[in-house]
Amino acid sequence: MVMTEEGIAAGRAAVPAPAPGGRARRPRRWTAEAGWAYLLIAPTGLGLAVFYLWPVLQTGYFSFTEWGPFGGHEWVGLDNYRALAADAEVRQALVNTLLFALLGLLGIPLAIVFAALLNRPKLRGVSVYRALFFIPVVTMPVAVAMVWRWLYNGDFGLVNQLLSVFGVEGPHWIADPATALYALVAVCIWAGLGYNIVVFLAGLQAIPREFYEAAEIDGAGPVAQFRRVTLPLLSPSIFFVSVLSVIGSLQLFDLVYVMAGSGQAARSNPAMPRIQTVVGLFYDKAFYTNDRGYAAAIVMALLVLIVVFTAIQFRLQKRWVHYG
């Protein structure tokens, strides 16, 4: 949320108002204050350290070991990483995951359009629409996935029933290698839409009306207003959402796990090689074939990937994100 807040603040700061600069810096009274602050964040910090940081370190260590079927592990050095580099299955999962991340970004323009529509001054029942869009976000992913699995059923699903009205014979969406990935991306976008809309709506509402009035006086039409005023001032929100969306896609697991079919059905799903994600593969190796060391290596590689992608995004933001 930090970025959005900043975006909103940036929008406000642009309103002609007494600038907060000029005043002398406050004296350094922070010792006691900081003490309280640390005390207050200690529970969260401790939780993070125990349940996030420590497992990450441990997983890092395990990625250099090989596990026995009943615990016990021995140091194997870089063996897991060597196997990883040569594993076609990992490569395919990586390609799939990157495709998920890339296509998942299509949800952003869609969310902006919906947010802009919801932001129209005379629209009635905004909160109802907002709630409707937000429902998928607060629904359990597994439940969402189950319902979509039924909708997508090639023989008895609602999607194909609808298509048949227009004389189109729909495919087996999640079992056909040609359509499975796109069918899943659509669900991911749909599931994340509500959250993104709310973020963008907050961003839009923080843009002062005066800007639009000024633009209008300068002769800008609605399109020019959107391009020259809305988009630049919304860019912090866009950046925030795109970072979260990419990280979320790279970690995709539950939707695929449930929708691809559970247990045996997933293993004989002909589309599986095209939709297996990196985290899905990790789960498979860690809990199905019990190759925990190798599984650890897979997630460490994913961790590096996420860090790299996020760093790239932060680097690129300088070119297009305006903080007012």
Partner: peptide, 16 residues
């Protein structure tokens, strides 16, 4: 990945 790591942590915690 966090989810996965958390599962791992839970398993480990259970083992401990």
């Amino acid at each position: 990945m966090w989810k996965a790591v958390r599962t791992g942590a839970a398993v480990m915690a259970a083992a401990v």
